[in-house]
């Protein structure tokens, strides 16, 4: 009798176990499918929309990498090659020269090279750049805005939640398809900017 009772209890337990296991498997499958309906085959990476960026300087401080994986990028296509460069020189610089007293960049990460009268090329030395956006603000206010910030994917960890995206006041950082990982001005301007505008409308 007791054996029978015991085996019955065991059977019942087994039944419950299997039932629960099935339920869990089903709910897991359910959640899986719900999420799977919205999967992207390709991966996504974080990137800054230079047209939304307000040059607040948080990219330098909040990135999980030190120095930040955000660097200034120079879209040469848009550059005016100005002698009086708002991104290179302090706004009230005494001379238009390369001396430290005139340079805006705190780490001297912009190289100024004479091309021909009166044009100069500006190149970013990425090892020195800390992504503080000082030059970006200068170039955007006084120049063509050819200097702008981008997340460099050879440095970026591609965190699950980007620490600078979280603190970006302009919501300029979002996930983009890994197949088009950059929003470099010039290429990015023509279509995408218009698209964003029409969406807003």
């Amino acid at each position: 009798m007791t054996d029978q009772k015991h085996s019955k209890t065991m059977q019942r337990r087994d039944f419950i176990q299997t039932g629960m296991r099935l339920t869990l498997a089903l709910s897991l499958g359910g959640i899986g499918t719900m999420a799977a309906l919205k999967t992207a085959k390709g991966d996504t990476v974080w990137q800054i929309d230079p047209f939304k960026c307000v040059q607040c300087g948080r990219c330098a401080d909040y990135c999980v990498k030190t120095p930040s994986a955000v660097k200034c990028v120079h879209a040469y296509d848009l550059c005016g090659y100005c002698d009086l460069c708002g991104g290179y020189l302090k706004p009230d610089a005494i001379a238009q020269a390369t001396g430290a007293e005139n340079q805006l960049c705190p780490t001297a990460a912009i190289k100024r090279k004479f091309i021909e009268e009166p044009y100069f090329e500006y190149e970013i030395v990425e090892d020195l750049c800390i992504g503080c956006a000082k030059c970006v603000a200068g170039c955007t206010s006084f120049g063509n805005g050819s200097l702008h910030l981008q997340i460099r994917h050879d440095l970026c960890d591609n965190c699950n939640e980007c620490a600078i995206a979280r603190v970006c006041p302009a919501d300029a950082i979002s996930r983009v398809p890994a197949s088009e990982p950059y929003k470099i001005k010039g290429d990015f301007t023509a279509n995408n900017k218009d698209q964003t505008q029409s969406r807003e409308e």
Binding site: D92, I94, A95, G99, A100, E101, P106, T107, A108, L128
Partner: peptide, 23 residues
Amino acid sequence: RLKSDPQNEALINEIRAFDLLAR
């Protein structure tokens, strides 16, 4: 300080040295 005295070579050199040191 340099702004009030833009021709001061010594000051300019000081700034450059300090900047290099800081970086």
